[in-house]
Design a protein around this nucleic acid. Structure first.
Length: 202
DNA sequence: GAGTAGATCCTCT
DNA sequence: GAGGATCTACTCA
């Protein structure tokens, strides 16, 4: 039984808790009938204004991150280093800019299509490892920023699959060294032993 | 195997 | 005009 997550899932206040619950859920994109999906095995929480690693740190508000200040349940896509598209899930309610970065997926559906998009010959653990690759494999670009996850084009589903506490772990986030002590917050959640988890142990 | 540099472009100051 | 929530390839050991 697969069911799409509704607004009540995203609009809760505890972004860390939502992040943990996202592990095991399925991210689906449906561009003009072409469906690709994967199970979320790694993500990071960005806790709004108090989090120096977040784009909304200290209450920063720009046209780019405006979507983070909206309702939960929207996609926030951002281009990093001119190359990588990073896909985030906006959570919490209006004016509270919490978001969750999806870092890795375990591919389920549309693997052929993902291989085409990423210019790979065969499935290997690099296909959906790392946020840049996830977006590439699912065909997510900055123009998709602001899309509702309650629609049909991009959404997150629950098929009842769930990882137990023993199978998951938390660690400091990746690539946010500039954030001072906030870089050490254990806001990265992943499935232990999954080959798609980008492992840069610290 | 580990460490480092380069790619590449949008966004904010 | 500078820098970034990254990835890959290449160098050196």
């Amino acid at each position: 039984m697969v069911k799409k997550l509704g607004a009540e899932f995203y609009n809760r206040k505890d972004v860390v808790k939502i992040s943990k619950e996202l592990l095991g859920k399925i991210l689906v994109t449906n561009w003009k009938g072409v469906i690709t999906s994967g199970r979320i095995v790694e993500c990071e929480a960005y806790a709004g204004v108090i989090d120096k690693a977040s784009h909304a740190s200290g209450g920063r508000r720009t046209p780019r991150n405006e979507i983070m200040y909206g309702e939960g349940g929207y996609a926030y896509v951002y281009l990093c280093y001119g190359i990588h598209h990073l896909f985030n899930v906006v959570t919490n309610s209006r004016d509270i800019p919490h978001a969750i970065l999806i870092r890795a997926l375990d591919p389920i559906e549309g693997i052929e299509e993902m291989l085409l998009r990423t210019d790979k010959k065969k499935l290997d653990h690099t296909l959906t490892r790392g946020p840049g690759n996830v977006s590439k494999a699912l065909g997510i670009f900055t123009k998709h920023s602001g899309l509702s996850l309650l629609g049909d084009r991009i959404f997150i589903a629950d098929d009842g699959g769930r990882y137990s506490k023993k199978e998951t772990a938390a660690s400091p986030r990746i690539g946010v060294d500039y954030a001072g002590k906030d870089a050490f917050l254990p806001y990265r959640f992943y499935v232990k032993g999954n080959p798609f988890v980008s492992g840069k142990p610290r």
